[in-house]
Design a binder for these strands. Sequence first.
DNA 1: CGACCACTTGATCCCTATCAAAAGATGTGG
DNA 2: CCACATCTTTTGATAGGGATCAAGTGGTCG
Lengths: 241, 241
Amino acid sequence: MQRACRSCSLHELCLPLGVSDTDIDLLEKIVHRSRPLPRGKYLFREGDPFTSIFVARSGAVKSFTVGQDGSEQIIGFHLPGELLGLDGLTQGVHAASARTLETVSVCEVPFERLEETARQVPALQHQLLRLMSREITKREEQLLSLGKQAPERRLAVLLLSLSVRFSQRGYSATRFLLPMARIDIANFLGLAAETVSRLLRRLQDTQVLAIDGRAVDILNLPELRALAGAEPEEPAREACR
Amino acid sequence: MQRACRSCSLHELCLPLGVSDTDIDLLEKIVHRSRPLPRGKYLFREGDPFTSIFVARSGAVKSFTVGQDGSEQIIGFHLPGELLGLDGLTQGVHAASARTLETVSVCEVPFERLEETARQVPALQHQLLRLMSREITKREEQLLSLGKQAPERRLAVLLLSLSVRFSQRGYSATRFLLPMARIDIANFLGLAAETVSRLLRRLQDTQVLAIDGRAVDILNLPELRALAGAEPEEPAREACR
DNA sequence: CGACCACTTGATCCCTATCAAAAGATGTGG
DNA sequence: CCACATCTTTTGATAGGGATCAAGTGGTCG
């Protein structure tokens, strides 16, 4: 248990990257590892005082804000090793809520103590800054995808993003289970659930992927990449003219 | 010149916030202050090696990526005191380009030396982390606005954001000059330039604001706030039914 | 003064949201 | 283990809004 971070399979994606074994000891001392949380539980809520950041060891989490009409606005999906809650530091309260999409094991890292430790361990400071930078980059990519791309491309970008992230975590890049419902995908992409359903149908009809419920099988990865933005206009669409 | 940061009017918005006068000396030693850059110059380009972050002392900057068809995809507009280039740390190269929208005076902060100094000065480390957190929050807000809101609301959100940011910098919250062209606004909001033009017309027709070229005068700030998202549905629209 | 942009205004078409309904999945209690 | 209720997903039909195409206006800089 004391060597938790060192033996964690997410070592290379998470805070310990680049930190020496002896320094990881310092990090491990401040990390709280909780028991598994069932689906639908909150890690934190919008407006809660910001004291810690969180990382899932296993299981996916969604983050979202709630409009005054009560509707969820999904900001992102977080796989194991991806930091959660960093947006709370600015205001001192969490800017979004985070809820588990499935059974999730989380690590909680008290932020003040992390800051202290980072001062003593340059490599940890650097990795923390790098991970924050990654969060910025990630949101910029989302911004480009959501703000300016066609619905089909947005969906392709999301599927590809999941594919890449699953493969970084040692899972198949072409066969995986979606951790979220269609309606969550739609909400995240700024589309109607019906549109997502129809887009997925089209992707199946064109042999790009096969879907059974939440099980995705990417049959034509190059084509999915193309749809996600490799070239300006979709190439194979004779039937539409 | 040596006391540049301390006497800077952006003191409260920028890296020095919360740092003691003696420690600001350490920061000032590593900051390069350039002569004013004319409109249309690059601070850095996508793919450039990441070595520094930038802050404008005066003048606005846009950041954007370029699709392989050569089209700009504007990610954000940056007013004085807002950090630029933090998204480059993850990959070691800048994730976007930054170009001046008008004459701009910039400070360049070499990142490695900033990291070192932050280790020695806890308040600086904290403020750096806070500012990175703000960049994350800012992009999340953009994400919510761009991804899920109606065009009219997106525009209202942008105008309101500029209003708030100008007033934080000591300018009027209701009368200001847009630093960017309509086409940039459209690109940023994921809309056609024609749509932006029509939306602005509607906002003028409803007495929410007056526009002459790039000069904006917000006549009805509460209504603009309402349009930007205070309540689920727009309230005063009898003429449309 | 003319050329080049940025901006505005108008007309049309396509795409996606919306409404509606059915089919499928999930879970609960009898 | 089944029957029922609820929720998710799919499919269909319709209408509206914004992109696009097109033309015209206005401003700026040489």
